[in-house]
Amino acid sequence: MKKKMITFGGVIAAVLFALLAVHHFYTREVDTSKEPDTSKKEPAEYLHITATAYNNGQNDDDGISLVLYLYSIRDQTMSEIARFPIDPDYPVAFADLHDNKVYFSDSNPGEDFDNLRTPKVREVTFIRPKTLYLMDLDFGNYQPIYHTDQFEIRLTRQLDANRILMTWDPFMGASKPRTLRMLYLDTQKVEDFDVPGIKEVKSFYPRDNAEGIFILGRDLNNTYGLFYYDLVTKQVSNLFEKYPLPKNHRSLVDFVYSMN
C-alpha cells in the first residue's frame, strides 16, 4: 500500500481546527470543456493556482474575487477557469476537471481566528518538537521516520523514496525568509537546499518524476511569483513570465500540484 508522509504537532492541529471553524467550503459547477483533455490514458500534470483580484480593478473598497488558474505542465498553457466574489480572508481552491466542479473556501464577513502568534505563545513555544510520520493513505499503520527539536518544520513534501524536502524556520515567529532543507531518510542527515535565484519559499511541490520543483515565493529581486526549478538543468523559470497577470490582479495565494 502506498504511504504518505505526514507531520504531527499539537499546535498545528489547533490551528487546523481554528481554520475549519471559521472557513466554509463550497463547490460550484464550472465549464472545463475548453481545458486540456484529461481523458488520455497517461496522467497529465496540472497546477491549480489560487489568486485574488480587485473587483473595481484598484483596491479592496468594492471587495475582491477568488480567481482559479489552471496550468497544464505538459502543454505549458495557463487559463482562468473560475472567478467569483469572496470575503478577503485566506481563499483556497481546487478544480475537479472530471466532474466540472471547483472546490473553494470562504468565510463570513468579520470572522477571524487567533493564529497562535501572541507574544506569550512565542515565548512558551520557542521551538516545538516535530516528528515526521510515514502513513498509509487510509491513515493507518503509521511509523515515525524523523524527529527534531532544533528547528521549526513548516511544510514537508516527499521528493523520492529517500529524500524529503521541507521549509523551515530557526524558531517560531522568526523573521528570516523561509527556505528549503533536504532530509535523507537513510542517514537522517539534514542539509540546506538552495534554489538559485530564490530567496524565500512559501509553498512548493516536487514533480511526480522528481525532475523539478514548483515554488511559490520570492526571487532575489523580491518579485513574488510561481517558479519552476529544473533539478536536471539547475535552471529557474517564472511561470507567469509568458502569461502576464491581469491589471486587476491582487495577489497569488497558493497552489496545488495534481495528476489527472
Rank of each mutant, 00 (worst) to 15 (best):
M1P: 13
K2W: 08
K3R: 11
I6S: 08
G10L: 04
V11M: 11
V11I: 06
V15Q: 15
A18L: 10
L20F: 11
H23T: 10
T32R: 07
T32M: 03
E35K: 06
T38W: 10
S39C: 10
H48G: 02
T52Y: 04
N55C: 04
Q58G: 09
D60E: 14
S65Q: 02
Y71I: 10
Y71F: 13
R74N: 15
R74Y: 05
R74L: 09
T77G: 00
M78E: 03
E80I: 05
E80H: 00
E80P: 02
A82G: 03
A82V: 00
R83V: 00
F84V: 02
P85M: 02
I86S: 01
P88N: 05
P88V: 07
D89R: 12
V92N: 02
V92A: 03
A93F: 00
A93P: 05
L97T: 11
K101L: 10
V102A: 01
S105W: 05
S107D: 15
S107K: 15
P109W: 06
L116F: 15
L116W: 12
K120Y: 13
V124M: 13
T125V: 06
R128L: 08
P129I: 09
P129C: 08
P129H: 04
L132P: 01
L132N: 00
M135D: 07
L137S: 08
D138K: 13
D138M: 05
Y142P: 04
P144N: 12
T156K: 01
D160S: 08
D160A: 12
A161E: 15
T167H: 07
F171N: 01
M172A: 13
K176E: 11
T179H: 04
R181L: 04
L183M: 02
L183A: 00
D186N: 13
D186I: 08
T187G: 04
Q188D: 02
V190K: 05
E191A: 07
V195L: 07
K199D: 14
V201Q: 06
K202A: 09
F214Y: 12
N221C: 00
V232H: 13
K234E: 13
Q235S: 08
S237M: 12
N238H: 11
E241L: 14
K242W: 03
Y243P: 01
P244V: 14
K247L: 14
H249V: 06
R250Q: 06
R250T: 01
S251R: 11
V253N: 07
V253E: 12
F255A: 00
F255M: 07
Y257R: 05
Y257A: 06
M259R: 13
